[in-house]
């Protein structure tokens, strides 16, 4: 089998796809997700129609940004729910020990589980793409903005998936793993703005009354917040990103979370079973074999 055939024949990936699509709740998640998104767009357009702003490109930009932010927030709740039980669930169902006696690398198992969980999230995103066509009806959006928005969403979803799998691997109970993952997500979404406020207050009171130069900690922390960086895609100019800010917070966000995702997946593969973890086998789905036994006796 060549490399691509092996990817398609990956047992964990296949099993996860099959199992996930057989859950009775799967079509309901899809239905509710699309229904909620559609309802929001429809309501927004209805409001615009009443305000006679229906064909205003600026309003259209706001619609796209609103959609992206809503999708971001909805997925912040959906992805931990999909991923935080992937490993701990195997432990609780007592299927993990059997899985670990197969010659699959820990990294391979984690990657397959991560890909399978994200595949469903991408299904949600792709299924919601037709809703985005509403945006194209009235213009005002550049292809670059659309591309940046989706790259941002992709990185965020990958990170959230990695976070869920990491806690699922680290913590034995699914319930605890899920609560911890949501806690970590809340820390990012709410904790960073709180920290930003406190830092701004500190600078304002003790160091520098002028906010002409944005303090570096504020730039760095802003670059770690999904909503601020998403806003930067549409309102970067208004935020003064191209003049006052030293760091391009969008690319800081993308690169920091991409790196964090890799780190979380490697750590998850370690915690899956420290006894079987091998440093260099992360990217190989099947363990390497050596020839000939070496029993001295």
């Amino acid at each position: 089998m060549n490399r691509w055939s092996r990817v398609w024949d990956d047992p964990v990936l296949n099993k996860e796809f099959r199992q996930r699509m057989r859950f009775a709740r799967t079509p309901w998640i899809l239905f509710l997700y699309l229904g909620a998104m559609g309802l929001l767009i429809f309501t927004y357009m209805l409001i615009l129609q009443e305000k006679k702003d229906f064909l205003d490109p600026e309003m259209n930009r706001m619609l796209l940004m609103g959609l992206a932010l809503i999708q971001l927030l909805v997925l912040s709740f959906v992805v931990p729910g999909l991923t935080a039980g992937t490993i701990s669930g195997e432990r609780e169902r007592q299927t993990l020990s059997v899985l670990l006696t197969m010659p699959l690398s820990s990294g391979g198992i984690i990657l397959s589980k991560w890909c399978a969980s994200l595949a469903f999230v991408f299904l949600l995103i792709i299924a919601s793409l037709p809703l985005y066509t509403a945006v194209f009806l009235f213009g005002g959006i550049s292809p670059g903005e659309l591309l940046y928005t989706f790259l941002h969403l992709l990185v965020t979803v990958c990170f959230l998936g990695g976070l869920g799998i990491f806690f699922s691997s680290l913590i034995r109970r699914t319930g605890v793993a899920m609560v911890t993952t949501y806690g970590a997500v809340a820390l990012i979404l709410v904790g960073i703005p709180v920290a930003l406020f406190l830092i701004a207050l500190f600078y304002d009171r003790f160091l520098d009354t002028s906010l002409q130069d944005i303090p570096l900690p504020i730039e760095l922390l802003s670059g770690l917040h999904p909503v601020i960086t998403q806003l930067a895609v549409f309102y970067g100019h208004q935020m003064g990103l191209d003049q006052q800010w030293r760091i391009d917070i969008y690319w800081l966000y993308v690169s920091a979370y991409a790196l964090l995702t890799v780190g979380l997946l490697v750590a998850a593969s370690y915690f899956l079973s420290p006894a079987r973890w091998k440093k260099w086998s992360f990217f190989s789905s099947r363990g390497s074999l050596k020839k000939g036994p070496k029993d001295p006796g």
Binding site: R93, T95, P103, R276, G287, K290, K294
Partner: peptide, 18 residues
């Protein structure tokens, strides 16, 4: 030292398995 090779030649059934 050679867990992958060992896994290929054993079939393991734990006392409780799902």
């Amino acid at each position: 030292e050679h867990p992958d090779e060992v896994r290929r030649i054993i079939g393991y059934m734990p006392d409780f398995f799902g």
